[in-house]
């Protein structure tokens, strides 16, 4: 029973990790809490769901969903990043909230406000290993999440884009002087975080077979918790934090009650930020904190 719950938590953690990482990238590099990420997550789930219902294959459906979320993220970049250089850091945050409200309500208008079943071709296939029941789509989702996080790590640490990102995290003014194309590099980062969030949404649908217009908010709060727990701006921190948050969530549901989940998860987050704001792995992996 305990082992089964832990496995469930682990698998859920993979999706939280994608969202946590999407948040973590924009915070680590631009010091900006991007509230459009829950909307992109939701779009990833809804768009792939709509494509599947029209009878397209899963590959094409997810690809279209990713194209939509990546494109939306680039549009959002136009409306948020431009002001980040100014001192008032609330402006991009407000714009990103505007996009959240916009996308969520557009989805309500076109898809309704009820949760929709996700017509995944894999359904709820599962296998039994020892005494554990493992859902195959969840396992696959977890593997994909891990692969994406590793890819993201490689991109940030090994590529030219990643070097640009890290130098912008240090100082965008100086990066510009040193010849980094700040505009394009930041676009690259938005694209990555949009794809991560969108993929998270699609994998959520495949794993839990249900999507709705407000699926992003809950997961986003958990993702933010995971990010803080692991350390803001820290890639592995996002993964570790997500595993712990998901584990705590699943254990609380089965041993306390499902109503107590929020008390425990957010209580933990509050406590952490008060006593250990740098998180478990520290928040300096991508960069030092800025105002």
């Amino acid at each position: 029973m305990l082992a089964q719950q832990l496995v469930n938590g682990l698998l859920l953690g993979g999706i939280y990790a994608l969202v946590a990482l999407a948040f973590s990238l924009t915070i680590g590099i631009l010091n900006f809490l991007n509230f459009s990420i829950p909307a992109l997550f939701m779009l990833g789930g809804i768009v792939s769901c709509a494509m599947l219902s029209k009878g397209y294959g899963i590959g094409l459906s997810v690809a279209v969903a990713l194209a939509v979320t990546g494109g939306a993220s680039l549009i959002i970049e136009r409306f948020t990043f431009r002001w980040l250089k100014n001192s008032d850091s609330h402006i991009p945050l407000v714009s990103s909230l505007g996009f959240l409200i916009l996308f969520e309500n557009l989805v309500v208008i076109y898809f309704g406000s009820d949760a929709v079943g996700y017509p995944s071709p894999f359904g709820g296939a599962s296998i039994r290993v020892a005494k554990l029941l493992l859902s195959l789509p969840q396992l696959a989702s977890f593997a994909i999440s891990l692969a994406l996080i590793v890819t993201c790590y490689v991109v940030v640490t090994r590529t030219k884009l990643g070097r640009g990102l890290r130098s912008i995290a240090e100082s965008s003014v100086i990066s510009e002087m040193l010849g980094v194309d700040v505009g394009r590099t930041v676009s690259g980062m938005y694209l990555i975080s949009g794809l991560l969030a969108g993929m998270g949404g699609a994998l959520f649908g495949i794993s839990y077979l249900q999507v709705s217009w407000d699926m992003g908010s809950e997961v986003a709060l958990k993702g933010i918790s995971a990010m803080v727990l692991g350390g803001m701006g820290n890639i592995w921190g996002a993964l570790l934090g997500a595993m712990i948050i998901a584990g705590v969530e699943v254990l609380t549901i089965s041993y306390v009650s499902s109503e107590a989940v929020n008390v425990v998860v957010y209580g933990l987050l509050l406590l952490l930020i008060l006593v250990m704001p740098n998180g478990l792995l520290g928040d300096r992996a991508i960069l030092v904190e800025r105002m």
Partner: peptide, 15 residues
Amino acid sequence: QWRYVGFGVCIILLM
């Protein structure tokens, strides 16, 4: 819903 959509657009435009 259209009201909220309008609100979202307003926020973005105002910023």
